[in-house]
Design a protein around this nucleic acid. Structure first.
Lengths: 138, 138
DNA sequence: GTGATTGCAAATCTTTTGCACTAAA
DNA sequence: TTTAGTGCAAAAGATTTGCAATCAC
C-alpha cells in the first residue's frame, strides 16, 4: 500500500522546493489542502479538519502555515468578508463566486468570466492583480 | 450665511427619509461623509475626522452609524483587506482601484471597466452584486 | 414622558506574537 | 549540535454589545 508513502514524498519534495522544512504539521496540512483538488479554507476550518484527521496542530501553526504557503506561492488569499480570510489552493488566474448565505467560496472557471475593458491604472502605478467577486444568494 | 443652515436641513431630510432620527451625531457624520463628494472611509478615519471637526462622537457610534447608513442604502461596504472595512459614499454601480501600498481606495469610473462575460450563477442562486478590485502598486 | 440613541467599558472574534520546548538536518 | 518550527497563552486590532445616561419628539 503505497497510498501513504507516495503522496507524502511528493508533498515532502514540494515543501523542500519552496524552502520550508517538511515537518509533521506542514506535511499533514499540505496533504489535506493539496490532495483533494481546489480548496477554499479559513484557518478555523482547516483546524477543525486537521483535528478530524487526527492531525494535532495548534491554531497558531495553522495561521503560520497558511501564511507561509501563501508567501511562497502555493496558495492565494481571498478577501470577501470583513474579519475573515479565505485561502485558496488554486493559484492560477481565476475569479470567485461567493455565496453570501453560506459564506462559501467557489471558483469561476478561468474562461467563464473576463474583464472587458481593463482601466488604465493611475499614473505611477501598475496593476498587481484583478479580483472579481460575484456575490450570489440562493 | 445659509451655508450652515441649508446643508443641515438637506441632510436632516435625508435621515428622516430613511427612518433614522436626525441626531447631532448622525447629522454631523452625514455632513462629513456626503458633502465632500465620493468618499472611502474606515471607522477609525471617520472618527479622527469627526474629532478634527470638533464633532464629539464615540467610536461605537461611528460603527453603528456606518452600519446603519449602509443598511438603508446611503453607503456601501467594500472589503479589500482582511481585518478592515471600508465604507463608500458612492452607491452607484462602479468598481475600485486599491492601492496596496497606501491602503487607499479609489473609484474606477463606471464605464472605464466592465465584465466581458458574466458567468451563469450556480443553479438555484442569483447574482447579488459583482465586485471588481484592481489592486495596484506605486 | 417615552422610546430611540449615545457613550463607555467590557466582550467578542480573528489573527499575530513572545518565548520556552521540540524536532529536523 | 544548531537552527527552524511548534504550542501555548497572552497580546493586538477591529468590531460589537450591554447598560445607564441622554436626547429627540
Amino acid at each position: 500500500m503505497d497510498s501513504i508513502v507516495r503522496p507524502y514524498s511528493q508533498v515532502f519534495d514540494t515543501l523542500r522546493k519552496v524552502g520550508l522544512r517538511p515537518t509533521r504539521q506542514r506535511l499533514g496540512l499540505a496533504r489535506l489542502l493539496f490532495e483533494n483538488g481546489d480548496r477554499h479554507v479559513t484557518a478555523e476550518q482547516l483546524h477543525a479538519e486537521a483535528a478530524n484527521a487526527n492531525l494535532r496542530v495548534s491554531l497558531a501553526t495553522i495561521y503560520n502555515t497558511l501564511n507561509q504557503f501563501t508567501g511562497v506561492g502555493l496558495m492565494r488569499e481571498v478577501v470577501v468578508e470583513p474579519g475573515r480570510s479565505y485561502f485558496d489552493t488554486n493559484t492560477t488566474d481565476h475569479h470567485h463566486f461567493f455565496h453570501e448565505d453560506t459564506a462559501q467560496l467557489q471558483d469561476i472557471p478561468g474562461d467563464a468570466i473576463s474583464v472587458g475593458k481593463v482601466p488604465e491604472p493611475p499614473a505611477g502605478t501598475r496593476v498587481e492583480r484583478v479580483d472579481i467577486i460575484v456575490r450570489i444568494r440562493g
